[in-house]
Write a protein that binds this DNA or RNA. Structure first.
Lengths: 335, 335
DNA sequence: CTGAAAGCGCTTACAG
DNA sequence: CTGAAAGCGCTTACAG
């Protein structure tokens, strides 16, 4: 085993001997525990600074808290998640908690959760979970959990943060109807119970019926791949729909691309509305109308709830965000 | 302290007693160590499966390897990083290594590195590092390190994976010159020594001179914010440049947006070339010419190198990727 | 207010 | 081939 000899790690013992105190005194200072005099604390902190000591997270994890939380994202491609992360990060800034991310790629959400539990993290935020209520309850039984973007009928063992996704669907439809569109389709995703997408679909259908457009309800579901989105968009266009509400922005941008490739002009030939109001919406070449659910706010609240839960709160809390339409050229009234 | 009592964790001892062996025998099976009979191994594996045992990463970290590596990204907004992650993930799939990500937000790269060292991770991949050679050498002295996207004059204690960024700059310029453009500017980023951006600038300048266009060299550097990019793009357009080579795609998309807002048409009034060939380039409304440095390949190689290094390789290796131009409408020859 | 002891769940020599 | 012992760096009662 040829290993480079790593510079010896500085431990609590080194700090103790430098400060001339017992090593348990150092531990107490670190954890802000009771029963340390100001003099002792000052001396220890000085040594910590001098030696550049940082606690070994693995060792901490064996006994108490690691002061690290985990955040799980379903993918890194959807720019909405960057907004959520930004909110979480801001909320954590003034706390002693650090964060690591797990992004579902070839592995599964469950594997990532397991891996983070094995690392003894203090709590977990799962964004856009694809797990069932039962699975999430199982996780919540083992560590503090907040789920962001998943509507669960009866989550009592963990907190949730959600956009009012049914309202998103309603707002999108009402807006398009006001602009003069009637044959409004929805471009959705093959999904599962309790997902944000399911709620958006429900809101879409409800508003269509309320507007007397029930006969025009048309929900097309495509997997996440660009190729599939293309095919499904084409078929909607062939059906001569007048407007398409897409479950997330990048799908809307792809739909826009397909329409353009077919020589159609937006919104004249087909109007498009996205969801999340990510940074690409504002680009002139897209000018995509979108529903803003403030990912930043969502992340901020999720982090707040998680910390409260780590510090002892037992009762579940559920935070709801109200979406807001940002109208742009892609849904302008037909001339 | 009212804490929910978490279901007791299954440890190596539980497995041992279930299998009727000593707990050290279990440890050996887990680590594939020498000196375990097939019969014992089979019995232990059966118990592991039955009990659903997974090793406690924190405990492992106290003595040996955690089998977890860390990947640090400078941000989550640039879609190029999703490609890199995908490559790393693919490379890890057939190994026993898990991965967590750290994304630089409000914290710093150095803080994230420290945090991951404290977690006793087995190795680190830093993508798009902003640290100096010295800082990175300091990290490499403590754990196996691969740096992706950072040209360091004399990295001997860690591996690197790089795109040939000077070549990217040259290819961009040559392509634009072939298409008939002469006043070619570069939209860059305020940056540091050894960065990929610096190299792209160097390649740009070199190719401009080689084409006899030295007098048209114009490098505008903007911070990462959309607002700043707007201002800088406007000033380039006011100088009546004929083409703009942007250091990364989303900057190019923003430049495109600014041009559009000013009523200019692309490429007739100004041609645009991006870098990374991320998924947005192919959208009809963008149709952005871009240099493909294959983020997936980059991630794949980085993970391979890191694992080799974790398993004992001492000599530094440096992998170079050759960029490839993907031409689209944004740089078509002026009619 | 301060310190000595036990123990978290593993790995790593070492002894049988 | 198998197992008992020591120890990684902390936290948590507990004793002084």
């Amino acid at each position: 085993m040829t290993r480079k000899s790593p510079p010896k790690r500085i431990t609590i013992h080194d700090v103790a001997s430098d400060a001339g105190v017992s090593f348990s005194a150092v531990s107490k200072v670190l954890r802000d525990a009771y029963g340390v005099s100001d003099a002792l604390r000052a001396r220890v902190n000085e040594s910590i600074a001098k030696l550049g000591y940082t606690p070994n997270t693995a060792a901490r994890g064996m006994r108490g808290k690691t002061h690290v939380i985990g955040v799980i994202f379903p993918d890194m491609r959807n720019p909405y998640f960057a907004d959520v992360l930004s909110g979480i990060s801001a909320a954590l800034e003034r706390t002693t908690y650090q964060m690591v991310q797990g992004i579902v790629q070839h592995s599964t959400e469950a594997a990532l959760v397991q891996s983070m539990m094995n690392m003894q993290l203090d709590g977990l935020i799962i964004v856009g979970s694809i797990s069932t209520s039962e699975e999430l309850s199982g996780v919540a039984a083992r560590l503090p959990l907040v789920v962001d973007g998943h509507h669960l009928p009866n989550a009592t063992s963990f907190d949730t943060v959600n956009n009012d996704d049914a309202e998103s669907g309603r707002i999108a439809v009402r807006h398009l109807v006001e602009q003069g569109y009637r044959k409004i389709a929805m471009l959705s995703l093959e999904t599962h119970n309790g997902s944000v997408i399911e709620r958006r679909e429900a809101g879409y259908e409800e508003a269509m019926r309320a507007a007397g457009l029930g006969r025009h309800i048309e929900i097309a579901r495509a997997p996440q791949s660009l190729r599939d989105i293309q095919v499904v968009t084409q078929s909607l266009i062939e059906k001569r729909v007048e407007a398409i509400f897409c479950w997330t922005d990048y799908v809307a941008l792809e739909a826009m691309s397909v329409a353009g490739s077919l020589g159609l002009s937006i919104p004249r030939d087909v109007a498009i509305v996205g969801h999340d109001n990510t940074m690409y919406c504002g680009f002139e070449q897209n000018s995509l109308t979108s529903l803003d659910q403030s990912g930043e706010q969502s992340g901020l609240q999720a982090a707040r709830l998680l910390i409260e839960r780590i510090e002892g709160r037992q009762k579940a809390e559920h935070f709801l965000i109200h979406p807001r339409l940002v109208a742009r050229r892609s849904s302008a009234a037909p001339a």
